[in-house]
Write a protein that binds this DNA or RNA. Sequence first.
DNA 1: AAAAAAT
Length: 719
Amino acid sequence: MSHVAVENAHGLDQQIAALDLKSDAQGGGTGRRYIPPHLRNKEASKNDSPGGWDVGRSNGYVNGFHDGRDNYMNGSNTFGNRGPVRNDRGGRGGGYRGRGSGSYVIQPVQNTGFGYDNKDAGGWNSSKDNAYNSFGGRSDRNKSAFYNDRGSSRGRYERGGFGGGGNSRWVDDSRDEEDWSKPLTPNERLEHELFSGSNTGINFEKYDDIPVEATGHNCPQHIESFHDVDMGEIIMGNITLSRYSRPTPVQKYAIPIIKTKRDLMACAQTGSGKTAAFLLPVLSQIYTDGPGEALQAVKNSVQENGRYGRRKQYPLSLVLAPTRELALQIYDEARKFAYRSRVRPCVVYGGADIGQQIRDLERGCHLLVATPGRLVDMMERGKIGLDYCNYLVLDEADRMLDMGFEPQIRRIVEQDTMPPKGLRQTMMFSATFPKEIQILARDFLEDYIFLAVGRVGSTSENITQKVVWVEESDKRSFLLDLLNATVIPGEVQDNTGENSEKPGKDSLTLVFVETKKGADALEDFLYREGYACTSIHGDRSQRDREEALHQFRSGRCPILVATAVAARGLDICNVKHVINFDLPSDIEEYVHRIGRTGRVGNLGLATSFFNDKNGNITKDLLDILVEAKQEVPSWLESLAYEHQHKGSNRGRAKRFSGGFGARDYRQTSSSTTNGGFGSRGSRNAGGNRGFGGAKGGFGNFYSSDGYGGNYSQVDWWGN
DNA sequence: AAAAAAT
């Protein structure tokens, strides 16, 4: 790197000069001026006047997305005046459904006016660089303060030659300026935007019953309160603003593990509070340690490539997620916990305009949430360097492997510039722990702690599970009956809207179907029947997917017809009823689906339509019902018995009839570096279904790998 | 006989 600068010293000099010029111009003729930290927010608010770029961007964000759907939609002819709100009809196959024009844009406002953004707005940045030159010892002091973890000054580049008057005021204050652990000035508007939403924190007494087991050597003690571990001023403030009162089980264990810089393999479902379980300690650590070498790397990138040239960002932390919506959801959480910090979270995923995402990255990116494909794309375009990424999180790891992301994940983690395991800290989350995940854990994790959190969804007695026999041809009319008649146990039916029979906005119903075509067809049907409904599946445009989700969340469309895309990870509160219009063929999928209800300690109802097409799930479904102490229809019991003794020899039989693969399991576990699940393995080997007895027990952690060895080679469809 | 994910 540095030799580039030397060779190109002249050009660089010019670029720096150009930078200064530009800054002066932007400063409105005020010249180079240092703005002390405590005044910067005011400075930013001044710029907030209508027409200022800051407000412009914010509005772009608000109106085009998240919170501003109201404005956007009211201004749109597509919606509004005709009864139930819905997306298009008509334009089937036309791709884009619903809205008229404009590309879909993500424009976060996080940290506007701070940190890297100041570079664009303030115009004092280059004099700061000069200060580095003028006060030689300065950079070394910085180094000791921030470069503590990965000590070497690898990749840093020393500039010399074009010094120039430093600014002693800047130097005096710069300690504050660079101290990432101190909260920045509050921003009321942003605070409201981030925290006014519903409380997604799960703080419910019932969750105390969920068993957690941590294994691995030197496992730190779990905490009982957020105050038991020092996460710093910023994090504690944001925990309060988020109205989190006490940690969930997975948080109690994961937070101290991550804070003590250990690698982690956690088996936990979404809905257990696991996003915060890794975001809180990771962000807290970043606030403590500061940007380290990444800061200089980004500066170098700017200088080497010019003010308007390529600017590569070096995130300190990366979170990979399987679906776009989940990535977005994690990003939204990250923005909360990054409030008043210098950390700027970004999100990249497919289906959205990449140019916008690149521009957003260029405003600074310290924590990146991504789906694998788009991230690889960004890396190949030179927009993202993982050289300084000291925290890696793989969320829903089993799901990512199911979706065939393994090559991309290995490309990101192993075949690029990311620090190797041991140097970086790696956290993997997965609902199950099949062999593929064990191998990934062995490859990506160093001396890790294994955390098993009891299932929150299915075995929670919060959810009443019903299975009803419905022939294919009767499904639609049965669904209508259900929608009209459903009374959630323990809940007062909220009757809003003109038709009092239909569920109100606080009572959301999620209807799962197996195919995308089926989702469209059912949505059409419900619409014709007069229901406010929408749908989400992989053939809809990204914008439509997010809009459908928003309409559902907000209660504008209290019925959402969905495929598997919505089964996992999505945290939608107020889902009172999950209906499996089509049962999935995989029990894990079932568990995930019904886990969309009964969240945050609420009561939930899950109704599944069962007929002779669902033979493959009979046995597993029965087990789940028994485990969760649910009523089991007698016909299901006898069917399960029949199915077990049918001795069919189809693909599934191959996959599932081999008995519990204790041998496979032990083999893999013993070859895994300190997996720490030895005892679990043997318990499973002996007891087949694992920890059956415990309330909310560990049930099926190993079920999907436990049978036979063909797990990922041949799937149920023979692909 | 499928869904999801970069284009």
